[in-house]
């Protein structure tokens, strides 16, 4: 029994999730001690609803990084598909529910994702270059062809969905209230589906396999090109969903304010232990990493740190976090050497 817990502990110590969880916990406790506000129900709900959009983006970015690629186009992709959808629905004076908006955005997202997938999968071009290029193309279509401006009103269905809530948390001390948006359900569903897909389908295992070794995956019989193609379509759809949710929650469509999010999202995914070289990482770690970034961005104010310091903390977090995991790799190699030594002596 003791042996079992020991090996379990050993296994855990080799993974990233426990560390990031401890860091997260320490940060939360620190904020709680300093402000007494962190674990209040409304703050927790605020953080949960702030996690929805970055969380969805992170799921997509996570899949791409695990497959050995990288995607910097998802903010532009999401902006384009949601802007096109909103604009079209406004122009046709659509009065129905939010579903049409979601389906339409997902469809556009799938097409744009296929664009990435075509060049990365079929032409085997480096993902960084393709997504850099496509993000520029998407921006160009949005701002040039659609002549995008800020839309201060959005269709009624989207507006209603954005303001409807699952429940409302009220802080008994301050009396502040926070809504848990219905959109959080969409996030939970996508998270669950992607988790199941990565764990229980050959397609999902194929993403890991390709990230581990593309040549081996091909020889084992995985359809490498097809898997990548479909994966980028999925990522496009997830990003578009995030875009719709963001517009609904903000009650306006701003063409450019999602742009530039890619760096922090990728940082969160990598902080959660996903190897930037592909093949390794868990969805749990990815979510913990993203949550850490979200809390730093939203809750520093509770620590009495002015919001203008937020980037200093995120930057330091990325450097320290990646530095620690780089150090872990070095240490793991040296413990392996020590083990070899012991074996030799025995």
């Amino acid at each position: 029994m003791e042996m079992k817990t020991q090996t379990l502990l050993k296994k855990l110590s080799r993974r990233n999730e426990p560390y990031i969880f401890l860091v997260l916990l320490a940060l939360c406790l620190l904020i709680e001690v300093r402000s007494g506000q962190f674990f209040s129900s409304n703050n927790l709900v605020d953080i949960a609803s702030a996690l929805i959009v970055p969380g969805l983006f992170a799921i997509g970015a996570f899949m791409v990084i695990v497959s050995g690629g990288i995607d910097v186009s998802f903010p532009a992709l999401a902006s384009l598909s949601v802007y096109a959808t909103t604009k079209y629905l406004l122009d046709t004076n659509y009065q129905g529910g939010v579903w049409v908006a979601i389906v339409m955005a997902l469809a556009i997202g799938a097409v744009l994702g296929a664009f990435n997938g075509l060049f990365i999968g079929y032409f085997k071009l480096p993902a960084l270059i393709v997504t850099l290029g496509s993000s520029s193309v998407f921006k160009g279509i949005m701002q040039g062809a659609l002549n995008s401006k800020q839309l201060t009103t959005i269709p009624v269905g989207m507006r209603e969905w954005g303001t409807s809530s699952l429940f409302i948390a009220k802080n008994p001390v301050s009396g502040l209230t926070s809504r848990m948006p219905v959109a959080s359900l969409a996030f939970v569903i996508v998270l669950a589906l992607v988790f199941l897909m990565l764990r229980y389908t050959m397609f999902g295992r194929g993403i890991y396999a390709i990230g581990g070794s593309e040549a081996s995956a091909h020889r084992a019989g995985f359809g490498v090109v097809k898997t990548k193609f479909i994966m980028y379509i999925m990522v496009g759809m997830i990003a578009s969903l995030a875009g719709v949710i963001r517009v609904c929650m903000m009650q306006q469509a701003h063409p450019t304010n999602m742009l530039g999010m890619e760096m922090n999202i990728i940082a969160g995914v990598v902080l959660g232990g996903t190897a930037i070289t592909g093949g390794r990482g868990t969805l749990l770690g990815c979510m913990l990493g993203t949550l850490l970034i979200v809390i730093v961005e939203n809750s520093l104010i509770l620590l009495g740190v002015p919001t203008s310091w937020k980037s200093v903390f995120t930057g330091a977090l990325i450097i320290i976090g990646t530095g620690v995991s780089a150090y872990q790799v070095i240490r793991m190699n040296s413990t392996r050497k020590i083990k070899a030594k012991i074996q030799e002596v025995v």
Binding site: R205, Y208, A220, G221, R280
Partner: peptide, 22 residues
């Protein structure tokens, strides 16, 4: 093949079972 066509990032179990599952 010389590189054994394995997936270094996955478990022994998956490495063994993928081919026949596929």
């Amino acid at each position: 093949y010389q590189d054994f066509s394995v997936f270094p990032n996955l478990t022994v179990m998956e490495n063994l079972a993928f081919n026949s599952e596929l």
